[in-house]
């Protein structure tokens, strides 16, 4: 696996249900039943209230672009072929912020406030990422 030319996630046990969900085509996030909020990234307990009354829930994962940038250079060789690409922070409707690429669109058309839907992208076999694409007809 260390031979992969791609930047793969660094997997940790506490986050495995998240990555497993993506491999199965579903976005799963941790929900704290005590303070009634989702949290991202995954942890053994809720980072807000430290309750251990948390569970994994499948979510819709649509959201709004909070901010974004188009890198002028590739920080790792594997990104060179993908330039130009959009690195964004997306505020999911369920209340967490998450980084992703905005795909399936011209980077020049991405705007803050744009509505986006989740896209699960397989980087290589067994490794999937949550990305986003503009909603049909969406412009901020």
């Amino acid at each position: 696996m260390s031979e992969s030319p791609n930047v793969l996630p660094t997997y940790s046990g506490e986050a495995e249900p998240y990555w497993q969900g993506l491999r199965e085509g579903e976005v799963r996030l941790q929900y704290c039943k005590s303070c009634e909020t989702y949290q991202f990234y995954p942890r053994p307990i809720c980072a807000g209230c430290w309750s251990d009354d948390i569970e994994w829930r499948a979510v819709e994962a649509s959201g709004t672009v909070y901010s974004f940038s188009v890198p002028g250079f590739a920080p790792h060789p594997s990104f060179k072929a993908r330039m130009p690409y959009v690195v964004a922070l997306v505020d999911l409707d369920v209340g967490v912020r998450i980084m992703g690429n905005i795909v399936d669109c011209d980077p020049d058309t991405v705007t803050i406030g744009m509505r986006v839907d989740p896209v699960i992208s397989e980087i290589e076999e067994g490794h999937s990422l949550l990305n986003f694409k503009p909603q049909q007809g969406a412009q901020a």
Binding site: V7, Y11, S69
Partner: peptide
């Protein structure tokens, strides 16, 4: 970083850019 690196942000630049 586990949840950022795979998206290719040149850091710290991309953070300040955003």
């Amino acid at each position: 970083w586990q949840f950022e690196a795979p998206y290719g942000p040149p850091l710290p630049l991309a953070a300040y850019a955003m």
